[in-house]
């Protein structure tokens, strides 16, 4: 009989977090109205679209080039940028069923999941980066154990940081290798680990190569089927149904 899952890792972008409501016309429309520059709405939307073409994806902009939203898109309007940062948090939502799943897993099953996500900026205190701030704002942070990134691992309850994760990568698997060492110290083996994510190259293939159970989240980005995927879920209600058989 397969061992029961004791460690659950969750990818953040387009997986736990749903950006569907974060649309440029809404975002820049609200900002322009708040700073009284309604005539700039189409200009800012157009520039944001151009910026996306430069960096290929919105996450690419957010992770490494957010300063250009201020300098290029918003003409250096710091008040507008401050609103952007607040609105970004406000308009990002939990993926359908993600909150219910997290509470169930943590409270009923006693497994606090960990966020395993790319983060380009240096890790600061809990709530200072976009991901842990999202967890705080959505009231979910207390149900999570660690925030694990190539910038370091952080205990979300205490804020303690483990810098040895700096320089690791999800894609080349070094982050998972180090994580396995940590988990081994807690007596957790690879067969007792599960990850939920949407990208093969970072969330599915490297963990599967290390013996993890993999759930491919298809609710936002559906990359198609993958030989390294054990289960597919289009929302977190389906993730919960799968997890009920694993824990």
């Amino acid at each position: 009989m397969a061992k029961k899952i004791r460690f659950v890792g969750i990818d953040y972008g387009q997986c736990y977090m749903a950006p569907a409501t974060l649309r440029n016309p809404r975002m820049f429309g609200d900002i322009a109205k708040m700073v009284g520059k309604q005539e700039m709405i189409p200009v800012w939307v157009d520039r944001m679209r151009r910026l996306k073409e430069k960096y290929k994806s919105y996450s690419g902009i957010k992770e490494g080039h957010k300063d250009e939203i201020l300098s290029y898109v918003l003409d250096g309007d710091q008040a507008a940028m401050d609103i952007f940062n607040d609105k970004e948090q406000e308009l990002l939502g939990l993926a359908p069923g993600a909150g219910e799943f997290t509470v169930w897993l943590a409270e009923e099953k006693g497994i606090k999941p960990s966020i395993i996500s790319e983060l380009k900026k240096t890790l600061g205190p809990v709530g200072s980066d976009i991901i842990s701030r999202f967890l705080v704002n959505k009231g979910m942070v207390k149900h999570f154990k660690y925030f694990i990134t190539p910038q370091g691992k952080m205990d979300l309850a205490t804020g303690e940081q483990f810098p040895e994760y700096r320089g690791t990568s999800k894609e080349d698997g070094t982050l998972y290798d180090l994580l396995m060492k940590d988990l081994a110290a807690e007596g957790i083996t690879s067969e007792e680990c599960c990850i939920i994510g949407d990208k093969w190259s970072t969330d599915i293939i490297p963990p599967k190569q290390r013996g993890w159970t993999t759930i491919q989240y298809t609710g936002h980005i559906h990359m198609g089927s993958c030989a390294s995927t054990d289960y597919y879920a289009k929302d977190w209600f389906e993730v919960k149904a799968i997890m009920e058989t694993l824990v």
């Binding site: 109205k33 708040m34 009284g36 520059k37 309604q38 005539e39």
Partner: peptide
Amino acid sequence: NILGGKSQ
């Protein structure tokens, strides 16, 4: 909490 919808 009141904003101009189309113009300031």
